[in-house]
């Protein structure tokens, strides 16, 4: 294959590959630098965020989740397992990242359940029954409230939590904080402020262990 054209092509391809690699390095670095800034701490955990576990726990896991996201559903039992692995050492904080059509509604209703003191049970139940209400080809938004009412929550108060819009601002703040922190997928975990790059039991457990050792 002797051709006059081959070297310009090799040059062109190398140029683009090098540019892509350089852009990647620059982008990653700027992202890490952003995360290292002090203002990040307040964007990670807001005073209103639902949290489980001791407030002064040595490790804080912040999970940006979407109640309607299947991966979040799959991670839910894993998160529980990791938290149970380190009793009293881990605080779990939930932030909302509403990426789907009914995510914000589900989040408002979850906040409504929180008003009635059943937040974590409600979150578990909505994940468990997610295929019923959050399937992509047949989303049934009305099922969300029904499921919570079936758990024994007060229907009128739940409806009011949505209608009044009193949780909308928090949910929007979560989304805005998540975007600024570089959350582009759900679930995204920050373990003591460091973004977890891989999902699963082992990576999450390892990140908690590493934070405890530090």
């Amino acid at each position: 294959m002797k051709s006059r054209n081959i070297w310009p092509i090799v040059g062109l391809v190398s140029l683009v590959v090098v540019a892509l690699a350089a852009a990647t390095v620059v982008y990653r670095r700027s992202q890490d630098k952003d995360l290292a800034q002090a203002s990040v701490a307040e964007k990670l955990v807001r005073p209103y965020s639902p949290s489980m576990g001791p407030a002064d726990a040595p490790v804080t896991i912040v999970e940006f989740l979407d109640p309607e996201c299947e991966a979040c559903r799959a991670m839910a039992p894993i998160v529980k397992r990791v938290v149970a692995d380190f009793p009293g050492k881990v605080r779990l904080v939930v932030r909302y990242m509403p990426f789907h059509g009914n995510s914000a509604l589900a989040a408002s209703l979850l906040e409504g359940a929180r008003e009635q003191g059943k937040y974590w049970e409600a979150l578990d139940r909505l994940f468990e029954l997610q295929p019923e209400w959050g399937s992509h080809d047949n989303p049934r938004a009305e099922r969300i409230a029904e499921i919570l009412v079936e758990m024994g929550l007060d229907k009128a108060r739940l409806e009011d939590a949505v209608r009044s819009g009193r949780h909308a601002q928090k949910i929007e703040q979560d989304r805005a904080d998540g975007m600024e922190l570089g959350v582009r997928a759900t679930p995204s975990f920050f373990v003591n402020g460091t973004l977890l790059r891989d999902l699963g039991y082992e990576p999450l457990r390892a990140a908690v262990e590493a934070s405890l050792r530090r």
Binding site: I9, V16, L20, A23, Y27, G182, A185
Partner: peptide, 28 residues
């Protein structure tokens, strides 16, 4: 051949750009 070189350059930049958006910036 220059127009084809130009087309190739555009395709390379578009490919690299789209991969940057999805794989580096993690935009779905």
């Amino acid at each position: 051949w220059w127009p084809l070189f130009a087309a190739l350059a555009v395709a390379l930049v578009a490919t690299a750009g789209s991969l940057f958006f999805s794989e580096v910036m993690k935009l779905p």
